[in-house]
Design a protein around this nucleic acid. Structure first.
Lengths: 149, 149
DNA sequence: TTAAATTTAGTTGCACACAATTAAGTTTGA
DNA sequence: TCAAACTTAATTGTGTGCAACTAAATTTAA
């Protein structure tokens, strides 16, 4: 039950008073912080996200990956083809529903998991946040994500 | 003086426990929320950010735009050339320092300001947040941005 | 049953992002 | 002074993102 849906409208025309800009900038800075760690594995950040899901689930359809990552086939198809070229994943039509393409983790992709183990903690260490702060912020971001989805 | 720099490491390998993914997804969702409003002005979100700064400052160098937006010339140069083609901005070398290029707002670019007035409040209305919540979140995002910059 | 609607990936085209490099201009320090 | 170091944009090349569209497979509803 929120009372004031719109904050301080007069100054919202300024970049630094908006919410979207720091999200946009911080998202890119985060990706850049991952970059030196991912570069050692020859991975981009979106490719790393796909692998995180496949390390957990083994295989997922393009549709399922798109739902979890909020990406569409226009982004995923070429990205997954590059990952297929490196033998990290396989791509094949589901025989039970030929519309679906199943992306399955392959041994070279599985082998990256071990090398990536410490990435999350190395990133978290750069943030200087407590666990409750971290979890509260994450919760707020997911709440907003639900608002906009 | 933070006591616990790294949160709950065991589960950080999962997408939904990380901070970067919701930032990445939310940033893109926000841009998508702006899109129908910006489309009426034939603007992309990064172009809109450039105009926000030029509406405030009149003119800025490429370097200054890059510092404020955390974007480099590889992104800005082609973007600004597209904005120049539409007569929204001019691009000229600073005679006092020929290395610098000054981006100056032009009348058609200035004219967009009025048409964009209500964009921030229309966006804010979709968030269902109070002013204090909004400001607290913005503050946290800027704090993190400073950590990573 | 079967034509229409829906679902799922893929394709196309455009606009970012950014690393790496280049080129030109300016500052500096021995 | 003047060569080296630094600063600033531009360029090149790669990889996303996403809107719009296409094509094939499946589901649906009359």
């Amino acid at each position: 039950m929120k009372k004031q849906p719109a904050p301080d409208l007069n100054s919202l025309q300024k970049l630094e008073n908006q919410l979207c800009f720091p999200l946009y900038a911080l998202s890119r800075r985060f990706t850049k912080a991952y970059q030196p760690l991912l570069q050692e594995l020859d991975l981009t950040y979106p490719q790393y996200l796909v692998l995180l899901l496949l390390w957990e689930h083994g295989q997922l359809t393009v549709k399922a990956l798109g739902e979890k990552l909020l990406l569409d086939s226009g982004t995923l198809t070429p990205l997954l083809k590059r990952m297929e070229q490196r033998q990290w994943v396989s791509r094949q039509r589901d025989p039970r529903d030929e519309r679906s393409v199943v992306i399955a983790l392959q041994p070279p992709g599985k082998a990256l998991q071990e090398r990536a183990t410490r990435i999350p903690e190395l990133l978290a260490a750069q943030l200087n946040m407590t666990v409750p702060e971290f979890e509260a912020l994450r919760g707020q971001l997911y709440t907003l994500l639900n608002q906009l989805t």
